[in-house]
Amino acid sequence: MTFTKKIIIISGHYGSGKTNIAVNLAKKLVTEGKKVALVDLDIVNPYFRAADNRAELEALGIRCILPQFANTNVDVPTLPPQIHSVFVSDETVIFDVGGDKDGAVALGVYRNAINKAGYDMIAVVNMYRPLTATPEDTLENLREIEDNCSLSFTGFINNSNLGEETTAADVEASLSYAKAIEKMTSLPLIATSYVESLHVTLDTLAMPIRDITKKIY
C-alpha cells in the first residue's frame, strides 16, 4: 500500500471508520519519512473525531488542521482557513471527510485545488453498518458522495468491524463483500484493515491498525 499523490482523501459512510483509518495512515506516512498534515473536514459529527487525537499526532510532528469549534459546545460547522495552506506546502495531506454526502459538500469547496495537486480518494467501507451492509447499498452511498464533491474515488479500504466485539472471523467473513464491491465498482481494494490485536488470516493487503476511538468508560 503506497501513496504517491499529494492529497489523500478518506471518505465513506459515517461510522465506517474513516477517522481511525485517517489517523493510522497519518502516523504510518510519518514513519516513512513524509511530512504530513491531517485535515479534519468532518462538519457533521459532534463528538468522535480526529481532534480527539490531536496531542498524540502533534507529538509525532503531524500538522493538524481542525475546525475551530471541534469538541466545544458551538454547534456551527466551520472550515478553518488554514486548509488553503496545504495546497502550497510540501506536505502529504490527509483529508478526513465526515458525514456522508452532506460532509462531501464541504470537500467539494476545494475540488479545483485538489484536482490540481493530484489526489487519491479512498472509500472506507464496513459491511456491519446496516446502511452499507450490501455491495449495492455501499455503491449508492459512494456515488452520492462523489456527486456532492465532484471528485471520484480511486480505491477503497475494507474496514468491516463490529467495534470492540470484532473477531478475526468477522473480518475474514467480510472479504467476499469487499471482492463484490471491487467487481461492481472497478475500484481497487487497497487493504483490509483490522485492529492489530486480532489474528486475522489474509493472503494479501492486510492493514493492521490501532483503534484510536475516544473511550468514555
Binding site: G15, N126, Y128, R129, P130, A133, N161, L162, G163, E165
Partner: peptide
C-alpha cells in the same frame, strides 16, 4: 446477526 450502529440509528431502527 449483529450490526454496528450509533445509538440514535439503533433507536430509529428499533
Amino acid at each position: 446477526a449483529k450490526v454496528l450502529m450509533k445509538g440514535n440509528e439503533a433507536i430509529a431502527e428499533a
